[in-house]
């Protein structure tokens, strides 16, 4: 399809970034991933992560390889994406109460204390954090962005598909993307 940009899927953990990666994969944008972090109960279909991303800003050698593909970049690392590349960003949003609830379940499974930060405080922090992150993305000349709400994506996918199609100038198979949505999986686990 000749994409010369890097597709980036970003957001907070548990905002639907893995689901979006799998959707883009179905839609024709191959993921850049290494399967170091394997599927588990929190992400039964896999994490779609590429470990070298976590080495930003020190390791940028993988970026040329990401051209034409989709890579998951944690919001915290977005500021380290270098200029010299064009990025199409799918920014996943989700109800913050749901994000925090889902993160807590994940932390318990990882043996971490989920209550180090009270929920109300964490939601306040995340709200400010996301606002600043959006500011960074919106003001970056080499980034085009679509904000996709996870909750709306599941309840009314067509609108989200339209926004994703626009982001890629129609160069994506939205009908196939729909196949990646396993409503039973995402609805039943509540996170």
């Amino acid at each position: 399809m000749g994409r010369d940009y890097i597709t980036v899927v970003t957001g907070l953990p548990r905002s639907g970034t893995s689901l979006m990666m799998s959707m883009l994969d179905k839609g024709g944008i191959a993921p850049l991933k290494d399967d170091v972090r394997t599927a588990d109960v929190d992400n039964p279909k896999g994490y779609y992560e590429f470990e070298r991303v976590k080495k930003l800003p020190g390791d940028q050698g993988w970026l040329p390889e990401a051209r034409g593909r989709a890579v998951k970049v944690l919001g915290e690392l977005m500021k380290h994406l270098p200029s010299g590349f064009e990025y199409r960003v799918v920014f996943m949003m989700r109800d913050l109460d749901e994000i925090v609830s889902s993160q807590k379940k994940m932390m318990i499974r990882r043996g971490e204390d989920p209550d180090v930060i009270p929920d109300d405080e964490l939601i306040r922090l995340y709200r400010t954090y996301l606002k600043n992150l959006k500011g960074l993305v919106n003001s970056s000349e080499n980034m085009r962005v679509a904000y996709i709400n996870y909750n709306e994506l599941l309840s009314d996918p067509d609108q989200s598909f339209e926004e994703i199609r626009d982001l890629f100038d129609g160069d994506i198979d939205a009908d196939s993307m729909r196949d990646a949505i396993d409503l039973s999986l995402y609805r039943n686990r509540g996170g």
């Binding site: 972090r37 976590k54 915290e76 993160q103 994940m106 180090v116 922090l125 954090y129």
Partner: peptide, 21 residues
């Protein structure tokens, strides 16, 4: 909005605990 260094560290610590950072 400016986040204090302390607040930023709280967020980062959360991301580390989740295995994303």
């Amino acid at each position: 909005e400016d986040m204090s260094d302390e607040d930023q560290e709280k967020v980062k610590e959360r991301l580390r605990a989740l295995g994303y950072l």
